[in-house]
Amino acid sequence: MSIQNIDVKYTAVATAENGRDGRVASDDGKLDVVVNPPKEMGGSGAGTNPEQLFAAGYSACFQGALGVVARREKADISGSTVTAKVGIGANGEGGFGLEVELTASIPNVDAATAQSLVEKAHEVCPYSNATRGNIKVDLKVA
């Protein structure tokens, strides 16, 4: 797979202090959060964690991609939601890996249309394009 060349329209900038047990802030001050490992990974669970931030970004981005596809297909996705579950664990090679489950609820279309929209959104979404072939991403329709 070759590296994609893109025409960059926006660049987000965030800086972390003390890794998973510290703080993350964006350069514009709109994001400033305490991060802590979850209790399941031996942390305090007091703050958010990188996986929650990734889940938030992926679900929002995928919902946007769903909107792009719905406009093209003239489908009504009003009232729809996308939930991302991001799992982290040992990869068996001395490091860690992620996996994602995306569940879309699209109440105003039939099941076959919803499935088609989700699959097409997966082709459009920048997060999906960035992770394709690197991590397991399961698509579901609620």
Results as ranks from 00 to 15, higher is better:
Asn108Arg: 03
Glu119Trp: 07
Asp110His: 08
Gly29Asp: 13
Ala16Gly: 15
Arg20Glu: 09
Ser80Tyr: 01
Tyr58Asp: 00
Ala111Ser: 12
Val8Tyr: 14
Ala46Asp: 14
Val68Met: 11
Val69Asn: 06
Gly22Arg: 03
Ser78Met: 01
Asn5Ala: 15
His122Arg: 00
Leu53Ala: 00
Val68Phe: 02
Asp27Tyr: 10
Gly94Met: 05
Ala84Thr: 06
Val13Ile: 13
Gly67Phe: 03
Ser44Lys: 08
Gly64Cys: 04
Gln63Phe: 14
Gly43Gln: 13
Arg132Trp: 09
Gly29Met: 03
Ala75His: 12
Asn49Arg: 08
Lys9Pro: 10
Arg72Ala: 14
Phe62Gln: 01
Val69Glu: 01
Ala70Val: 10
Glu93Val: 11
Tyr127Leu: 10
Ala12Asp: 08
Ser128Thr: 05
Val34Phe: 00
Thr131Pro: 09
Ala46Cys: 11
Val137Phe: 09
Ala90Thr: 12
Pro126Cys: 09
Gly97Val: 08
Asp21Phe: 04
Val100Ala: 14
Ala70Gln: 09
Gly67Asn: 12
Ala46Gly: 06
Ala112Ile: 07
Met41Cys: 10
Pro50Asn: 11
Ala12Asn: 10
Glu123Ile: 09
Gly19Ser: 11
Tyr127Ser: 08
Leu117Pro: 00
Asn36Tyr: 00
Asn108Tyr: 01
Pro50Thr: 06
Leu139His: 04
Lys74Glu: 12
Ile106Phe: 06
Ser128Met: 03
Asp27Met: 14
Phe62Lys: 02
Ala16Lys: 07
Ala60Met: 06
Lys9Met: 12
Ile88Ser: 13
Asn18Thr: 07
Gly42Trp: 05
Val8Pro: 12
Phe96Ile: 02
Thr103Asp: 15
Leu139Trp: 00
Glu40Thr: 10
